[in-house]
Structure formats: structure tokens, C-alpha cells
Design a protein around this nucleic acid. Structure first.
Lengths: 179, 179
DNA sequence: GGCAACATGTAACTTGTTACATGATTCC
DNA sequence: GGAATCATGTAACAAGTTACATGTTGCC
């Protein structure tokens, strides 16, 4: 259950509400471990039960109340313990690759269209990563915390570049194969 | 639910038992959509209910009986229909990237060790892919079915090469950052 | 006045993982 | 005689997805 730890890692940055966490995931750590707001709320409940976070309701006049979650010392210890444990290989699940594998059986016109869509998605992720890099990291003096995030981000950028090249090659090879 | 379709795609090749399918997944389509034997058995039950496969028990003297699943015409239609539908972006879930993102908070010695393990895993996948390519595809005349599989396999090979280079770069950048 | 975004969650369902269970055959 | 492999599954649980529910504020 790395979702728990991903949340705790975010909370080492600053205390956050479930909504803040969902936004934070979308814009950063979620590039490496995606989670929906429902998952985050459920996991926060469990983290509270295990006393890894401390949750405080803050009343706001007018607006609905915010529940702000703060990582506890027990939570910090849990993160360090987790960090030393071995990781698994990331799960492999790409329907588009299954379709490619089944090339003879599929609708190849639709398939080319789907590859184009995929290419655009990688392109927009690439732009987003580059924007974040130039905005927050380029030409700045970075501490270790920031350096870690930058290294991860640069790996993300290279990955998007690779994937764009990869799917473009696939399109060429499909053409060569006559489909 | 692409597992259903991945199974149907395998069964277009030849009728198979659940056990055969689990083996087949491990050695081919599972490179792009991993599934455990439990998932496969469960899904086969559902496919039978939906009449997309026809399941026949074959008694074997001595050995336990095999249940052989054959794709039906309805099943073939389902695959074609599925193939034209848009796909999602593959899920992103890599604990090692989360740890990299949280570099300051983690045990960096253990982290370097985990990257080394990951590198070995990619190396062994690469060898496996290359072995399959040279054994089944190199220097042969291929039909469209085989060409699709080869294109997917070559994308897999490039991906492993990219990932090896990527994690090696991360190790270098960690050294530069002093961890 | 309506719609998007803020903010929080529950419920139902599907998928994926871990552990358990059974019994035969083949190889050492 | 014991371990590995063949072959088939069930049960319990964890994780992920989709849909629903509620009420506010701020903008056009």
C-alpha cells in the first residue's frame, strides 16, 4: 500500500486537507502514483485510525469546514521504515499494446487514430513537465528535497520523449506492414 | 475490462485451458497486460456466462481433466468491437519513483540498492525479449499476425533499454547531489 | 440565474493480490 | 521418498473506479 506512504510524503511538505491532497497529487506526486480523491479520503481515514496523521477540523465562516491532516512522529517513522523496504516492478497494463499485439484481429484504422490520441496525450504531459521544470527548478539553488523532485521530473520528461518516439516508430512500422 | 479481451485475443490463436492461458500470458501478452492465474480463471467463468467462449471438459486418463476454452463467433465480434473503442492512458504506479520524489525523507543507501535491483530486473526482461525475437522472428517471413507481435516486442525491447539508461542516469544524478 | 470550482464524503461495484486447497505425474 | 511441475480452483481481502450526494462561493 504505497498510497498511504505517498500521502504521508506529501504531508511532510505541509499539513493538508483531503481536497488539497487530491490537487497536490494531480500536479506532482501523482505523475508517479496516481490516485483519485475517493481513494485519498478513504486512505486518510485509515491513516487517522493508525495514528500516522492527526486530523483537525477547522471551522470557516460561510465555507464548509476544512479537515486538515498533519503527519505525526509515528507517521514520519513509518515513511522511513517503508523507504528501506524493497519495491515491486511497476504494473504493466496498456490496452493499446494489447491491441498492437493483436494487430491482425483489430480495426487498424481505429488503431492508428488511437495512437494519434496517445501521442497528443504524451505531448501535453511533456509540455506540463517542462513548464514545471522551468518555473520551479531551472536556474535556482536547490536543496536535497528539491533535487529529488527534479530528478524524478527529468526522468518523467525523458519518458514522455521516449514514448512519443516509440509510438511514432510503431506508426511507421504499421505503414511498412501495410496497415 | 481489457483482461476479457486479452484472453479472447489469445484464444483466437488456439483453444486453451486456464492453465495454458496463464502460461501464455507469462510468456507473451502478459508483457503488455499482466494477469495472475486466479484472475484468468475468474474471467473465464464470466466469458463463459456471456457466451464469448465455449468451455469443454476433456477427460484425460490419469491426469486431472482439462477444461478447454474456445472463442465463439460472439467472442470474435466482441474483440472487433473492443478494438475500435478508445483506450485510456496506462496507469502510473511506481513506488520507486515515489521514493525518488521523496529523496530527502528516504533511506538513500537502501534506495540505491533498490535501483540496482530494478536495473537487474530490466536487464533480464531485455534478455528475454531479445531471446524471443531472435528465436521466433529474426530472418523469417512474417504474416500480419506475427508482424504485430514483433512490433510490440520491439517496443518492449526499446522500453527496457530506455529504462536501464534512465535509472543509471538517476544513480549518477544522486551521486552528484551527494547521496 | 446558471455554471464552474470549492470541499467533503458515501455506496456499489470491479479488479487485483495473497493465501489456501487438492491431487496427479515426473524427475532426482 | 521428496520436490517440482501440471492442473484446477475457492476465499478473503485490498485497491481502484464510477456514480451519487450535498452545500457554498464567485464569476459571467
Amino acid at each position: 500500500m504505497a498510497l498511504a506512504e505517498a500521502i504521508l510524503v506529501c504531508l511532510t511538505e505541509r499539513p493538508m486537507s483531503g481536497y488539497d491532497l487530491a490537487k497536490y497529487f494531480d500536479a506532482s506526486i501523482g505523475f508517479f502514483w496516481r490516485a483519485s480523491h475517493q481513494q485519498i479520503y478513504r486512505e486518510l481515514g485509515r491513516l487517522r485510525e493508525r495514528e500516522l496523521v492527526d486530523s483537525q477540523e477547522i471551522s470557516q465562516s460561510g465555507k464548509p469546514n476544512r479537515i486538515v491532516h498533519t503527519i505525526t512522529d509515528k507517521g514520519r517513522t513509518a515513511v522511513t521504515g517503508w523507504s528501506a523496504k524493497p519495491v515491486r516492478m511497476p504494473s504493466v497494463k496498456d490496452e493499446l499494446l494489447v491491441k498492437l499485439y493483436a494487430l491482425e484481429t483489430v480495426d487498424t484504422k481505429a488503431m492508428r487514430e488511437q495512437i494519434s490520441v496517445r501521442l497528443e496525450q504524451h505531448q501535453s504531459k511533456l509540455s506540463e513537465f517542462r513548464r514545471i521544470k522551468s518555473r520551479f527548478y531551472d536556474g535556482k539553488d536547490l536543496n536535497l528535497n528539491q533535487k529529488g523532485k527534479l530528478i524524478a521530473l527529468e526522468l518523467g520528461i525523458d519518458q514522455e520523449l521516449f514514448r512519443i518516439a516509440g509510438w511514432e516508430t510503431v506508426l511507421k512500422k504499421m505503414t511498412d506492414a501495410g496497415v
